[in-house]
């Protein structure tokens, strides 16, 4: 009962099938899990295993073929459910930042809260400056995304998602498109968020980050979770053969 109450996101027997005329891809094959409030879950696995698809399905950027996604007690897969409303409470950070190139950094951050009437322009501006200060970019508030480095862009993308004051943050390989020397600054921001108690689901190849920050690690292969546990269990003593193979390839 206690666990039920704490579950922020519940995923039940999720299937995602991509169909196009030439082929059918079964990207997620019967995945069930729970994400508890305040938990940092890191999803790892070989490329093409469906980890990004899984993450994108959590806020319905991909449509589940079957199964349920229950977020704060509401079934997102229900036709009657207003997905836009729930997406406001689910922040997402993309591999390629996806900042809006035609707007300044500040405008990038204030657009959604102001348009969705969560804040007035003044409140949003104030909040944006406060968050930018926290990630050390308050002096770049009037710059355009094209003028920032990759690491700076990703830090802005993270605080842009935070502007909506989400209950959970989804990270889709947030450091994979960065130059190596910029990975650290982005991970620092994420580490700080985790410390502040944010619920996070992170798809990443940064095993060091997973070891250090994760409460739970999910190992995915061929569309489902085949092993999960604390970072210690997964990295030091993996049980499944495929987990062992994967880890021996990425940890050298």
């Amino acid at each position: 009962m206690e666990q039920q109450k704490n579950a922020l996101i519940e995923v039940k027997d999720l299937h995602v099938v991509f169909r196009d005329p030439s082929r059918t891809v079964h990207a997620i094959t019967g995945l069930s899990t729970e994400i508890k409030s305040g938990e940092v879950v890191v999803v790892i696995g070989p490329s093409g295993c469906g980890k990004s698809t899984f993450l994108r399905t959590l806020n319905l950027l991909e449509t589940p073929t079957s199964g349920k996604i229950i977020f704060e007690g509401n079934d997102l897969t229900d036709e009657k459910c207003d997905v836009n409303l729930h997406r406001q409470r689910i922040g997402m950070v993309f591999q390629h930042f996806n900042l809006f190139p035609n707007m300044t950094i500040k405008k990038n951050m204030t657009l959604a809260p102001v348009q969705l009437k969560k804040k007035t322009q003044e409140e949003a501006d104030e909040k944006a400056m406060e968050l930018l200060k926290r990630v050390g970019l308050d002096d770049r508030c009037d710059a355009y995304p094209g003028q920032l480095s990759g690491g700076q862009k990703q830090r802005v993308a993270i605080v842009r998602a935070l502007m909506m004051e989400p209950d959970v943050m989804l990270f889709d390989e947030p450091t994979s498109a960065l130059d190596p020397e910029m990975v650290g600054e982005v991970l620092d921001v994420m580490r700080e968020l985790a410390k502040a108690g944010m619920t996070m689901v992170v798809v990443t190849h940064e095993m060091g980050f997973a070891k250090e920050v994760a409460d739970r690690v999910l190992f995915m292969s061929e569309g489902s979770i085949i092993e999960e546990g604390s970072p210690k269990e997964i990295f030091d003593n993996p049980q499944n053969r495929r987990t062992q193979e994967f880890l021996s390839k990425v940890l050298h």
Binding site: L61, R87, Q88, G91, H96, L111
Partner: peptide, 13 residues
């Protein structure tokens, strides 16, 4: 880029 509309939608717009 499709990522642009995904970013907008993921903010709840």
């Amino acid at each position: 880029d499709r990522g642009q509309s995904e970013a907008g939608r993921s903010l709840g717009l």
